[in-house]
């Protein structure tokens, strides 16, 4: 097995384990979000292996560098040390969710199945900022505009929601 495949499986296991760690860690929200960071970074590494370099870097910058930091910031700002909620009918929920999850997983895996073509050799410049940038500002320029509008509205929305006194 070549190095990249070994790396892929290492990062895959890392991603799955830390994702599970995030979902199953009911005691400590900070630890859960740090697990999420590990998943993000593992995914970024997998993107590098898939030769999507720019996406990998952006994944780290945005997800690890901004989004999860924001999560952490809010957790720390609100000082949520532990979530010790009153017990509810959780076993039912968990059982149902697990069942549903297994069902969906089987469906997804069946859907992909074997039979995808061989992975080709990528053309020159694949995954770099140049090609992506040119595409973004020619064919997909409308998408970029829409994204900017979306971000603007998100900023305004977050401001309104988080503002203490709206007047």
């Amino acid at each position: 097995m070549e190095v990249s495949a070994i790396l892929f499986y290492i990062f895959a296991v890392m991603a799955v384990v830390s994702a599970l760690g995030m979902v199953l860690n009911v005691r400590n929200t900070v630890a859960a979000s740090l697990s999420l960071v590990v998943t993000m970074i593992a995914l970024a590494a997998i993107y590098v292996l898939l030769e999507a370099y720019l996406i990998a870097v952006i994944q780290i910058m945005v997800y690890a560098g901004a989004i999860v930091v924001l999560f952490l910031f809010v957790i720390m700002l609100l000082n949520l040390r532990e979530d010790d909620f009153a017990p509810g009918r959780q076993w039912l929920v968990k059982f149902g969710a697990g069942l549903l999850g297994v069902f969906v997983l089987i469906q997804l895996l069946k859907l992909v199945g074997p039979g995808l073509p061989e992975v080709p050799v990528v053309p020159e410049g694949y995954g770099g900022y140049r090609q992506l940038g040119i595409l973004l500002y020619t064919d997909y320029v409308l998408l970029v505009e829409m994204a900017s509008l979306l971000l603007l509205s998100a900023i305004v929305g977050a401001l309104i929601l988080a503002k203490r006194n709206i007047d």
Partner: peptide, 15 residues
């Protein structure tokens, strides 16, 4: 699926 299960079972809104 892990994310889905998390979204469906966890009660902590942040999680």
């Amino acid at each position: 699926v892990i994310g889905m299960i998390g979204a469906a079972t966890r009660r902590n809104l942040i999680v």
